[in-house]
Simulated scan of single mutants.
Amino acid sequence: MIARDIGKPDLRYQQFPYNQVQQALMQMGVPPKGAALYIEMYKAINAGVLVALEPRSPENSTPTSFEKFVQDVFAAAYQDKPQLNKGQ
């Protein structure tokens, strides 16, 4: 759905190993300890160890669906992204 809404219907979801994500974070300037903490958090979320303390409810959730957010906010922001000057 995101791929379609940003005009790239062939874009696919790609999952990366934790160590590759950690290396990419450090290449982007995240300190090694910070990158390791992000990986620890991702692992805990994926394992179901880190969960929300309160279940979703109308009182703590927006009425905006994920689909509506992608269409109205994300896709618009993506389309307005600055273009990189390749080769300059």
Rank of each mutant, 00 (worst) to 15 (best):
M1Q: 03
M1F: 02
M1Y: 03
M1P: 01
A3Y: 09
R4D: 13
R4T: 06
R4H: 01
R4G: 02
D5H: 03
I6W: 00
G7N: 00
G7K: 00
K8F: 03
K8I: 04
P9W: 07
R12T: 09
Y13M: 11
Y13N: 11
Q14F: 03
Q20P: 03
V21D: 03
Q23L: 08
A24P: 01
L25H: 01
L25F: 07
L25M: 11
L25Y: 05
L25S: 02
M26W: 02
M26V: 10
M26C: 02
Q27F: 01
Q27V: 05
M28F: 03
M28W: 02
M28N: 01
V30T: 06
V30G: 04
P31F: 01
P31Q: 10
P31I: 04
G34F: 02
G34T: 10
G34W: 03
A35G: 12
A36K: 11
L37S: 15
L37R: 15
L37T: 15
Y38I: 14
I39D: 13
I39C: 09
E40W: 08
M41C: 14
K43I: 10
K43W: 07
K43S: 11
A44K: 15
I45L: 15
I45F: 14
N46Q: 09
N46W: 08
A47S: 14
G48L: 07
L50G: 10
A52M: 12
L53C: 11
L53A: 15
E54P: 05
E54M: 12
P55N: 04
P55Q: 12
S57D: 13
P58V: 03
E59T: 05
N60A: 12
N60H: 12
S61A: 13
S61L: 09
T62P: 00
T62I: 07
T64P: 00
T64R: 12
T64F: 12
T64V: 14
T64K: 11
F66W: 09
F66N: 02
E67W: 06
F69A: 01
V70K: 05
Q71E: 13
D72F: 05
D72R: 14
D72M: 13
V73Y: 04
V73E: 12
F74R: 05
A77H: 04
Y78Q: 06
Y78D: 09
Y78P: 10
Y78R: 03
Q79G: 04
Q79K: 06
P82K: 11
Q83A: 07
N85L: 02
N85E: 06
N85R: 12
K86I: 00
K86Y: 05
G87L: 06
G87S: 04
Q88E: 14
